[in-house]
């Protein structure tokens, strides 16, 4: 599990660095195209937007794994021992519930629906763009499972 997790981490890291780099280049290209070539590029704006949505989801997923998302810790910090572990697992479980219902179920249903509609400037099915949602949902669930396993491991150690 740990090795799979590290492999996925690496993949996600490389992917998000590439996404940002390509996005910067696309937007710069858009400026150049407008001034040097005097031809506006409708295609680069749409593509950058979709890459951005991908970036948001991929990096957000990564942050679920490393538990870097923002949260309000005031009450949680006061908890100790078994209660803290239980709440910690509860948090991961709720994240799994969210990923399963909204990202995996809702995401794959909207992806399937959108396979029949074409983006007006890229001429690709919108479903391809939407597909990142269920994919990231699955990875999020995996990350949260790893986090639960870690939490239980720590509990065993301290016991």
């Amino acid at each position: 599990m740990k090795r799979l997790r590290n492999a996925i981490n690496k993949l996600v890291e490389v992917f998000s660095v590439l996404l940002i780099a390509v996005m910067v280049l696309l937007v710069l290209w858009q400026v150049v195209a407008r001034y040097m070539l005097n031809s506006p590029s409708a295609f680069s704006e749409a593509l950058t937007r979709y890459l951005f949505v991908w970036l948001v989801l991929v990096t957000a997923t990564y942050a679920f794994g490393s538990r870097e998302h923002m949260y309000i810790s005031a009450l949680n910090d006061k908890l100790r021992g078994g209660v803290k572990t239980a709440v910690g697992i509860g948090i991961e479980a709720l994240t799994i519930l969210f990923a399963a219902c909204v990202m995996i179920y809702g995401g794959s249903s909207i992806t399937a629906m959108q396979m029949v509609s074409l983006d007006s400037s890229l001429h690709i099915p919108m479903g391809i763009v939407y597909a990142i949602i269920p994919v990231c949902g699955v990875i999020t669930v995996f990350y949260c499972m790893c986090n639960i396993a870690e939490e239980l491991g720590r509990r065993k150690e301290s016991a």
């Binding site: 940002i20 996005m23 910067v24 937007v27 704006e45 950058t48 937007r49 979709y50 951005f52 949505v53 970036l55 948001v56 989801l57 219902c101 909204v102 990202m103 179920y105 809702g106 995401g107 249903s109 909207i110 629906m113 763009v129 939407y130 949602i133």
Partner: peptide, 23 residues
């Protein structure tokens, strides 16, 4: 509900002006 939620999530992030933030 879940399909609409996923679609709102997508639409909320699908904005060219938001791209200025990571940049």
């Amino acid at each position: 509900s879940f399909t609409t939620s996923a679609q709102r999530l997508f639409a909320g992030a699908n904005s060219f002006s938001l791209i200025a933030i990571p940049f």
